[in-house]
């Protein structure tokens, strides 16, 4: 990056460090911070949608929807996360490719499954194998976000369902007494009040989600933990201009600080949120 970095072996002290910490490989570490933030920003709305949908489904009067809600929340919560993280992207990826294959290559006469191989015609590949690497990575990232949303959505659904049940019955009865329809009571009374009970559970879920991002690597997305491990491992002088021993401890300490700051900051935000949703509810105030 800097001009004096052409031969790092003659450098020492701050000059060496300023070169070492600005190698393109280190830039990958810094940009992967945004991978973490990007995943969080994208999954949270999805998780809340899945969670809200699951909770409403479980409260439904129509038994098929109710069963679906119960099935979703209990099945996803009961199966180890790692299985979902491996299964969802592969199953959906192959599912999409299969559908595209049917649509685009109707003349194809070979089987899709050949032994262990999953073979679709080249134009049905998703993304196409000729697509740029960043497209493959973006696609993988979306798949990962989707898998996260399904898993964490089930937990959120349970939390939100519990919160909806916790809103005092008298509140709903009062709403009916002043002539609100069921729909209006749900929107104007139940939803605003249920947040008070849901937030502590949801903040828990958020903290777990923040820490779960290293699971991304299972799906081929290189996040901050992957790069810290890769950069921290010992390097011999034959293969790098910056040989060093096992520096993983230093890199993992950096991760520790990063994640602690992130979770500490979000605790503060949740405390504020809790205050805000509890406004005007003196006797119901739940301390986070």
């Amino acid at each position: 990056m800097f001009e004096f970095c052409t031969d790092p072996s003659v450098l020492s002290g701050p000059a060496w460090w300023s070169c070492y910490l600005t190698t393109p490989k280190h830039m990958n570490l810094y940009t992967s911070v945004f991978v973490v933030f990007g995943l969080l920003a994208m999954t949270v709305p999805l998780i809340l949608t899945f969670g809200f949908g699951g909770a409403v489904a479980r409260r439904s009067r129509f038994f098929l929807i109710r069963w679906f809600g119960v099935l979703y929340t209990s099945m996803v919560r009961g199966v180890p996360d790692i299985i979902f993280f491996l299964f969802v992207p592969i199953a959906f990826d192959q599912g999409f490719e299969y559908l595209r294959h049917l649509a685009k290559c109707p003349d194809w006469d070979e089987p899709i499954r050949q032994g262990n191989d999953f073979v679709v015609c080249a134009t049905a590949k998703l993304p196409l194998s000729s697509a740029d690497q960043w497209i493959h990575e973006t696609y993988g990232f979306f798949m990962a976000a989707f898998a996260f949303a399904i898993v964490f959505g089930a937990f959120a659904a349970n939390t939100i369902y519990g919160a909806m049940q916790s809103v005092p019955r008298s509140q709903m009865e009062a709403a009916a007494a002043i002539g609100l329809s069921e729909r209006q009571a749900f929107r104007l009374v139940l939803i605003p009040q249920m947040w008070i009970y849901a937030l502590p559970g949801l903040s828990n879920l958020w903290q777990i989600l923040v820490k779960a991002t290293p699971l991304l690597f299972l799906l081929g997305v290189e996040d901050i933990v992957y790069w810290a491990g890769e950069l921290g491992g010992s390097k011999t002088a034959r293969f790098t201009d910056y040989p060093h021993g096992d520096w993983r401890l230093g890199y993992y300490l950096f991760l520790l600080v990063f994640y602690l700051c992130l979770t500490w900051g979000s605790e503060k935000v949740f405390a504020r949120l809790q205050e805000w949703v509890s406004r005007g509810q003196a006797e119901l105030k739940v301390t986070a």
Partner: peptide
């Protein structure tokens, strides 16, 4: 992003290993 993915798919041709 999805549009970008599909647009690229439509234009890109030729086999990449």
């Amino acid at each position: 992003v999805l549009t970008a993915i599909f647009a690229t798919c439509a234009f890109a041709d030729g086999h990449v290993v």
